[in-house]
């Protein structure tokens, strides 16, 4: 309440708690129009398991529409969360997209790690307009599909299919 945030964030308001009489800072909930989350497993009925540390279930519940990108499609009975995973019910998911290694160059915990070399390449490429365009052409617009993208980035490891 006494931070400088109150000076710059006009959306932060204070309100008196009618129970205690104390003043509190309140903020409107964030309701994204669309959330895109990455998940390890999903089923055709729309339930998924996802990494527990990333609050993706909260995101799915907050968004008006949620698209889950999954590493693999399994039978509904097999959508069971492992350690460090949570289950997200199909009522919170609007679409499931099958895209193995869909999180690349970031990680899908337990399946593949962050491709640090690729991220370094991206950071270097994004320093100027020309380098960024070349990056987009080589990795984003060039490959005709995701499979080809994974070949171009020389992806190894994980459950590549």
């Amino acid at each position: 309440m006494h931070s400088d945030l109150m000076k710059v964030r006009r959306d932060l308001k204070t309100v008196r708690d009618p129970y205690s009489g104390n003043e509190y800072v309140v903020v409107l909930p964030i309701m994204p129009d669309v959330a895109i989350i990455h998940a390890a497993k999903g089923s055709r009925s729309g339930e998924i398991t996802t990494d527990a540390t990333r609050n993706d279930r909260l995101l799915a519940m907050a968004a008006k529409k949620t698209i889950a990108v999954v590493e693999e499609i399994v039978e509904p009975e097999a959508v069971l969360p492992g350690r460090q995973e949570v289950f997200v019910a199909s009522v919170h998911i609007d679409a499931v997209v099958l895209a193995p290694v869909g999180a690349h160059p970031t990680a899908c915990p337990g399946i593949y790690e962050t491709d640090a070399a690729h991220i370094r390449e991206y950071v270097a490429a994004s320093k100027d307009e020309q380098g960024f365009r070349a990056y987009l052409e080589k990795y984003i617009f060039g490959p005709e599909d995701h499979k080809r993208y994974l070949e171009v980035v020389n992806f190894r490891g994980g459950k590549q299919s």
Binding site: E47, R57, M61, V86, F87, V88, A89, V91, H92
Partner: peptide, 9 residues
Amino acid sequence: FRLSEGFHE
């Protein structure tokens, strides 16, 4: 009918 946590959803 599977929920993530409970009927509060």
